[in-house]
């Protein structure tokens, strides 16, 4: 491993260890910081997995309560976000089981689902905002066409930038399955966006 990489990985390890120490003590200030820091990523992941903003909001809160209660189980040897996403995913699956659903796809109830509201606050031009919003809506609509198991791996890999090994840990599946889901997901996304663009 090269010098800067080693330094970066050591830094990340130290960070995870200090988080682990804080979680052991149930340090409320640390939890406040973590909620602030990971709010966007966790919420986005939950929205994509559940397909609903309202459900994502409930699971968001429940995930952090679980982080507080099970904080002592995080050993700091892996990335905190991988552990956080695994907790969130288990909560969603537990809820899904309690509703007697058959698969992760069942989480998306088209009748209850509200279209995702999109915003691009950083763009000053109204025309650009409209165009950007259309693109965003197109992306969201395309993502909703993809089965949830593929949507989930795409989000973890290309938005959260988790390594394939970390994803295997989060999803509790073999590396080969993660890869095949990624290939299929990528194809499905490309196809869905192409379909959206031509329609």
């Amino acid at each position: 491993m090269s010098g800067p990489c080693l330094f970066f990985s050591t830094l990340m390890g130290d960070d995870a260890k200090s988080i682990a120490r804080g979680l052991q003590k149930r340090d409320p200030d640390l939890l406040d910081r973590l909620i602030e820091q990971y709010q966007y990523r966790l919420f986005r992941y939950l929205v994509y997995v559940t397909g609903s903003r309202e459900r994502a909001e409930d699971f968001f809160q429940e995930t952090w309560i679980r982080v507080l209660e099970r904080g002592h189980q995080f050993d700091g040897k892996s990335k905190f976000e991988a552990w956080l996403f695994a907790i969130a995913r288990h909560l969603v699956i537990d809820w899904q089981r309690s509703k007697k659903a058959q698969s992760l796809d069942m989480l998306t109830d088209p009748e209850q689902e509200h279209p995702l509201q999109l915003a691009d606050e950083s763009d000053p031009s109204p025309l650009h905002q409209v165009l950007s919003q259309e693109t965003q809506e197109n992306v969201q609509a395309s993502l909703q066409k993809i089965p949830a198991i593929y949507r989930e791996v795409l989000v973890l890999r290309f938005q959260e930038e988790l390594q394939i090994e970390e994803m295997a840990g989060v999803l509790s599946i073999p590396l080969s399955t993660v890869k095949s889901r990624l290939y299929r997901g990528l194809e499905a996304l490309r196809g869905a966006l192409q379909g959206g663009a031509t329609s």
Partner: peptide
């Protein structure tokens, strides 16, 4: 992939503070 990476989902207001 570019569209996926840049797609934004607005956070509900006060979600972090409520949590």
């Amino acid at each position: 992939l570019r569209l996926l990476r840049t797609s934004a989902i607005p956070l509900p207001e006060g979600l972090a503070s409520r949590t």
